[in-house]
């Protein structure tokens, strides 16, 4: 059974609705390790040794975070900068992450349509994920399409619940192999595989 590492980065989790609901549902799933970066490193002094050990012990790495300015919160970047060292994560001898899977679980305020040439943000959301995708590639990892919660400021409780349920299904499916990983890579959002709410409304 695949082991999942949830690298969670949220500077204001105490005010979060989306991630609170997602994490509440995911908490306690077997073989899922939640690593709350802002709680562990409030001073931003990420310790690469500890993080690398964690990474080595897991098969699927998930960056779960709000989508800030077309990217992750600052501490996530700090984590990437410090932990993915040359000679360990990438480079000739950097094969520690080889074959593992990486994906993002994000919440965004904008609707899916706003991420289009005609929309507010001008580009498809997936295009903004390019730095993550290439990071995975450079580290010899496979990048999975993101699980996205759009329109995060106006979801009602019912919608939140269905996202949470879909998230649990996703985590379980990834672990059990019920979701075929190479096939999943073909998806635009991974939402479609687990019946996450439709964004087109």
């Amino acid at each position: 059974m695949a082991k999942i590492l949830l690298l969670f980065a949220h500077p204001a989790f105490e005010r979060s609705r989306i991630h609170a609901a997602l994490l509440k549902a995911a908490a306690g799933l077997p073989n899922v390790t939640l690593h709350d970066l802002y709680e562990v490193y409030p001073d931003f002094d990420v310790v690469p040794r500890i993080e690398q050990k964690l990474l080595a012990e897991h098969d699927i790495i998930i960056f779960q975070h709000p989508f800030y300015w077309y990217s992750g919160p600052a501490l996530l970047k700090q984590w990437i900068d410090l932990v993915l060292q040359h000679g360990w994560a990438y480079g000739h001898e950097g094969v520690a992450l080889k074959g593992k899977y990486l994906m993002n679980v994000i919440s965004a305020g904008g609707k899916e349509q706003s991420y289009s040439p005609e929309g507010h943000h001008g580009y498809p959301l997936k295009q903004f994920m390019l730095p993550f995708e290439q990071t995975a590639t450079l580290c010899n990892m496979h990048y999975l399409p993101p699980f996205v919660v759009h329109d995060s400021n106006s979801l009602n409780a019912q919608q939140l619940d269905s996202y949470a349920a879909a998230y649990v299904e996703l985590l379980k499916g990834l672990q059990s192999g019920k979701i075929d990983l190479p096939q999943a890579q073909q998806q635009y959002y991974i939402n479609a595989l687990v019946g996450a709410p439709d964004h087109s409304s």
């Binding site: 500077p11 204001a12 005010r15 979060s16 609705r17 989306i18 991630h19 709000p66 989508f67 800030y68 919440s107 965004a108 305020g109 904008g110 995060s152 400021n153």
Partner: peptide, 12 residues
């Protein structure tokens, strides 16, 4: 100090 719903349109 930030990350407020009212502060910026798209922060959650």
């Amino acid at each position: 100090a930030g990350w407020n719903k009212g502060d910026a349109e798209e922060r959650n």
